[in-house]
Every structure is written in structure tokens, then in C-alpha cells.
Design a protein around this nucleic acid. Structure first.
Lengths: 121, 121
DNA sequence: CTAGAACTTAGAGCGCGCTCGAAGTCAAGC
DNA sequence: GCTTGACTTCGAGCGCGCTCTAAGTTCTAG
């Protein structure tokens, strides 16, 4: 079973523009298949990868670093330790972001509480 | 007691460039005082505001929306309900970001675990 | 008093990550 | 077979948020 680019766009929340851009940018594990036509045919595995990709992006991994990671994957099993390290490093930044965001949420909630008290008067 | 721009930069982690940029962009509650010279003299309140500002920014509130908020604050107590709504709306996006990031962390941890198993072999 | 570091303004420049446009090709339904 | 809308490539354009530059002024230490 394969999926059109618009189906994948719908499924992932990315635009078709962005999907093509990611492919051009070398972020796919392999170029997407074309079947008999010139149209892209995404496999389930492609979609799973795009979704993981968006996880990396949503935690602000720069596209260049995603590409590094992709290149390691393409280079085969020997790069597992490098991939591990890349992800472990990224994990640290995600943790930091989570903490920053939690702090920010507290600050916002504090102000909200003040304003609610004020409005309730 | 007042603080030089470089002291504030140090305290907040922003660059002096960024601090001036924020002021120009209308993100300060009032323009920073100049005392007897042309140099900025930040008050404690200014610093507290800059820090809150960075909380909004670190949760991806666009500068234009921060400015809206600032303008409401400047407009006085009558705008409290509007400020409340603005922050409440923003809170929703912060929650969403937190959830997205938590999901991403899980995905990353899953891969890390796989790689660790692989490496341990 | 002087040297040098820190500050000033205003505008230009930049990096990132898309996003769009143009011009053309292809596929599905009538 | 034809129309209509989705697809193709590839380069240009854009919005955001800084970041830097230049040229000049001011503060501080010796």
C-alpha cells in the first residue's frame, strides 16, 4: 500500500511543499518511490519516518542535524554508537526545553491568577 | 539602584543588541531611563519585566503578540480582562507545546533504548 | 588629563525554515 | 478522448528574530 503526497500531508500535518522540501533537503532515509509515474508513492515506513522527523523538528533540532542523523542511518549498522550519542545529546536539550517551558507556564499561571483576582473584584 | 545594559544582558542571558532591539520594538513597559547620561539605566522592575518577557518568548509567543500585551498593560487597569484572555489563550498553546515535547521525548527515548540494546551486544 | 572600554543610534544584513510561483506533466472521472 | 485538478521541478521570495556595522559619544581607571 502506498500514499500520495497529499495523503501524507494530511496524515502528518505538514504541507506538500514541506514534504518535498524535506526530501530535497536529504531528510528522507531514501528518496520516495515513484512507481510507474512521476508521482511520489510514500510507504508506511516513509510515513513513520516523517512522523519521527517531526518529533525531532518540534524539539528544535536544526534541519542540518537531522540530516546528519539521516546520513548516519544510511551509513549502516556500524554507526549505531554515533546515532546513540547524537540522540542522547539532543535529549539533554529537550529536557532543558521542557524545564524552561514548565517555568514559563508557572509564570503565566501566576499572572493569570492575579488577573482573575482583579477581574473578580 | 540601577543597572547598565551589559549587567542586564548578563543577568538575563540576552545580548545587549537584543535588549536594545526589544526596547525599539516596543516590548518594554516604558522606555528605559537614561539618568544624567545617554546610557540606559535599568531598574529592578525593568529586569523583572525582561525576565517575564523571555518566558513569553521562550514559549514562542511572537514579538507582535508580546507587544499587544505590553500595550494593554500600558493602557491601564481597564484592560485587565483583555490581558487575562491573551494570557489564557497563550497558556493553551504552551500546554500543547509541553505535550508535543513530552511525546517527542518518549519517541527519542524509545530510539535511544533500541540503540543501547544494539550497542550492548 | 588621557586612553580605552562601554555605550549610543539607525539601518543594513543574515540564517533559518519554510512557502510560493511558474511552467509544465499526469491521472481519474465523465 | 477530454477536462479538471493534483502532481512535478526548481529557483526565488519571505517572515521572523535577531545580529552586526559604522560612526560617533560618554564613562572610568590610572
Amino acid at each position: 500500500m502506498s500514499y500520495s503526497i497529499s495523503a501524507v500531508a494530511e496524515a502528518t500535518g505538514l504541507s506538500t511543499h514541506t514534504l518535498r522540501y524535506y526530501e530535497r533537503a536529504g531528510l528522507m532515509l531514501t528518496p520516495v518511490e515513484r512507481g510507474s509515474s512521476t508521482h511520489r508513492e510514500y510507504s508506511e515506513a516513509d510515513i513513520a519516518w516523517v512522523i519521527f522527523l517531526t518529533r525531532l523538528r518540534s524539539t528544535s533540532m536544526p534541519i542540518a542535524r537531522v540530516r546528519e542523523y539521516v546520513e548516519l542511518v544510511r551509513a549502516g549498522a556500524a554507526t549505531t554508537p554515533d546515532r546513540l550519542e547524537l540522540l542522547a545529546r539532543h535529549r539533554i536539550t529537550v529536557q532543558a526545553q521542557l524545564e524552561e517551558m514548565t517555568q514559563a507556564l508557572e509564570a503565566i499561571d501566576y499572572k493569570i491568577a492575579l488577573y482573575q483576582k482583579e477581574v473578580a473584584k
